[in-house]
Amino acid sequence: MKNQSSFKKRRLSVMGMTIGPMTAWTVLFFVFPLAYIVSLSFCGRDAYGGIVYAFTLKNYQTLAKPVYMQVLGKTLRMSLIVTCFVTLIAYPYAAIAARAGKRVQNALIAGIMVPFWTNALLRIYAIMNITSANGLINTFLLGLGLVKEPLQILYTDFAVMFGMVYTMTPLMVMPLYANLQKIDGSLLEAGRDLGASPAALFLKVIFPLSIPGIVSGVILVYIPSMFSFYIADALGGGKSIIIGNVISNQFSTSKNWPFGAALAVLVMGLSTLLILAKNLLTKKLDY
């Protein structure tokens, strides 16, 4: 009896040592902030931007207003377009990298990873530089006489989406590359052997087997696209507003933390739904 209890004690202390720090970390930096945001979204705000700790549903009533729903709709739409373009660019890139020789493979992966590791803001400023009225593209076009006035590229929805596609592409390439590379070469040979032309082989073997990679990539791209704000800030110049900007504004200039929290909870809810849908789909595709 005594032995058993000392064993239990020892087990507890071992558990404390091993999973303790992780639990503390998670509680401190994940559970607590999340709970805080959720509870904040049910609080009120006084005239000077202070938080009034009293239960209210006002924030959620506000965000149901058409103006916010329109921004949300636009965000979802833009994220969808961005995800589509990212997929179209990333798929061939990943497919070539997956089947290329070792050296080409390393070069292609470095080509996508090195910019990815470079500070994102820095890259966005570079895009601003290139696309602005007296930037690289316009200087070039004006110099050639192709346009009379500088083109308005910067501060448009196009610029925002371009920046997002540029930033998000690595997030799609990596899971797709891992997935495509895993496809056994003998499956491709078997397909050819059974009479599949290269196109039929892609449609009937490679593409179906790469769906899990696409799904992972879509999640990795779509969710950050919904939340992104600095790209829209920098390249949209306040003209192209997506939900990320609105949330970030509530916490900065507008000083309406509870409403910002409610918006964040809404977007988090949407991404949770997406991830649940993804899990369901991958379970069905699990072979």
Partner: peptide, 20 residues
């Protein structure tokens, strides 16, 4: 002739069945 045009079929060592 590429493999898909040849009137032969192969049984592979690792079976190479389409998992999907």
């Amino acid at each position: 002739l590429p493999p898909e045009k040849r009137d032969v079929n192969t049984v592979f060592q690792n079976y190479a069945l389409f998992p999907h």
